[in-house]
Design a protein around this nucleic acid. Structure first.
Lengths: 210, 210, 210, 210
DNA sequence: TATGAATGAGGCTTCATTCAT
DNA sequence: AATGAATGAAGCCTCATTCAT
């Protein structure tokens, strides 16, 4: 095996380990909450030493951000896959569904974002995160505008529709995760159905001021 | 002045101090975030010693919970005031408005609830909180059912309507507070208007599956 | 005992503890070198908990600086005591002697100053330190100028004389402390005598350009 | 090319690399201070791997010592070059000048020597360093004795003169490097002139007790 | 020989809570 | 009841050194 090959494999393994660390971190954060998870716990779960984590990431905050970026990139990937769809409603629905699909993960990132921004940590990565997100939102804006041209959607600035959907999704997530409100809803699936139907038609033309 | 009177006044002052502590704590939590606020900072703001705080509350978690209960009681008070209203829409609207009116406070309590439940802290108080909330929700349920009887609202279980409104409000709050999404919306007031209109008619009859 | 008295005594004890911590820190720094001394070691020597140290000082760097300031204040005290002396040579001699008298302490502070400045730590205290020192130097400058008026000293800017004396003292200290150079000098006392005589007459008139 | 030649070249390259490492280390130590420089930084500057450094040197302390030895050997080289000089004052002057010429380097080594000796690190190298230094001092002693025979210098043990000069040089270096004292002296060049003149005539006959 | 990923001891600092006065 | 000094567990991060490839 040539030296180049070897180097490539090493780099590969390094990336792999990075992924392992992030996976372990995410799993622990979800299980126990970020505040209860120490860097050492992450290392233990991966089966490596504490110091090794710091070969891959500068700070714990960086881990937070990288996870958030990964999430946002998954979303971007989703958009890429469905952007060809003729049905303009699909994108909005998929967006909605993606957000709701893993509520704990979503909520974790919401908390993390607030924390990380309050700490003014790793500003470059925050910027990167926001750049990706802006791209994603631009996709949505285009879709929304198409639907407004169709005459389907009420003609307010596109961000309004997106933000409203975002808010409903965000709230739905919090609802499904809230230990208290969970018991308030008996048939989760049916309710979600109801909620999605609201989300989709929300802002449809001719409904305002009714 | 008799001993009884004296004792009564003392008890009075003790209550007063308790309120001061909670007020100071809330103000600080809102200004800086719970994690950045130490018990000592709260004591300093009230102008008392740190130890004194522990004469009133067993732990910091108890402070969290008492604040949350106060919030929920404020909501109960609101319901009491408007429950006589003939216009059944009013209650829903006020509920919505109350939640949105002080988003940071609301978000704070949302965070605190998750934290406190994860810690399984002061379970008696958690129970008390949930009891009050259940009462509040029962009020809403009654209203919703009345509107469904009217034929105004789509006939799904009442909690669905409430939960949907809750979710939208929750999301709206997060949206308005998010440093990122804030810049995404140009005219905040106009957007909120849009959002409230959605919130009110959301779930109105005849819209589903449209 | 009145409350005021009690409070005063408490404050007194607090100060006393502060002094104990600084004394212990200084002793340890001298014995083992600053880098080998941990905050915990200092606490152990005083017989208190690690956290207590941080009730008195914000950081380890602050301890460094407070010790340095104490040293500089001792010097100021010395100047106050001898400033009345008619013999203008006395001040210079005492200054010299003070610096040489405890070489390890002096060297410690020299090291600390470099470290603390490189770290840009606790700038307010650095400023305070320098302010005191500037006062002390001003004392010396006045003395030197008097001697130049006498015609005793060569008429160059006063700081030159001071700086030269400072340099010789600084070097003498390093010499006496150097494990290597120590064995190079047999009769320490006699040599110091020689050095002091140089220090005193150094810069006397009529010697330059000989 | 024969195997022997190859081996020789390899050895040559190995030596060369060693020199590069030491050069890089010295440069970094001077720029940032020993404590802020990690082995990895040295490796990076040379453009090699961190592990390679440990093929050349057992510990970081060894690097320190090797640098100090190099410095002392430079001094020995200087003595060799000027030892033939008829003017006996020259050696003393050159010695003085050499020390003052690169104050940061000098101070670095002073710090390192204290550190390394406190750590009792690599005693063989410490011994070697001191052996070279002893040779250098012996050179100086011979010169001084010649000048005392001349009647130029006061007749005290030769090491006295050397030590005094060493001390003054050492102090001058510290002075010029001290961020604080620097601003105390306006005209650096003029002051150094003054200092050197003192250094040269320091201990000249007939001045003591004047 | 060269590499650089991995290690883990060790340092500094924070803060909720306790307790003697 | 009020105080605030004292505590120490716990967390984050650094870096010289090792070792498998």
């Amino acid at each position: 095996m040539g030296d180049l090959e070897k180097a490539a494999r090493k780099a590969q393994e390094f990336r792999q380990r990075e992924r392992e660390i992030l996976d372990a971190a995410l799993a622990l954060f979800l299980e126990q909450g970020e505040d209860r998870v120490t860097v050492e716990m992450i290392a233990d779960r991966v089966g490596i030493g504490k110091g090794t984590i710091y070969k891959h990431f500068e700070t714990k905050n960086e881990i937070y951000l990288l996870l958030m970026i990964r999430y946002e990139e998954d979303l971007a990937e989703l958009f890429r896959q469905i952007s060809g769809s003729e049905d303009k409603e699909t994108i909005a629905r998929e967006y909605f569904r993606f957000r709701i699909s893993d509520p704990r993960r979503y909520q974790l990132f919401d908390r993390l974002e607030n924390k990380v921004i309050k700490d003014q940590a790793v500003p470059e990565l925050v910027e990167k995160l926001h750049a990706i997100r802006s791209d994603n939102l631009a996709s949505l804006v285009r879709t929304m505008e198409a639907r407004m041209d169709d005459g389907t959607l009420e003609n307010v600035p596109a961000p309004y529709h997106i933000a409203a959907a975002w808010a409903l999704a965000h709230g739905a997530v919090a609802l499904m995760e809230s230990p208290y409100y969970q018991k308030f809803i008996d048939d989760k699936a049916d309710f979600l159905d109801f909620l999605v139907s609201i989300g989709i038609r929300m802002g449809n033309k001719g409904q305002r001021g009714k």
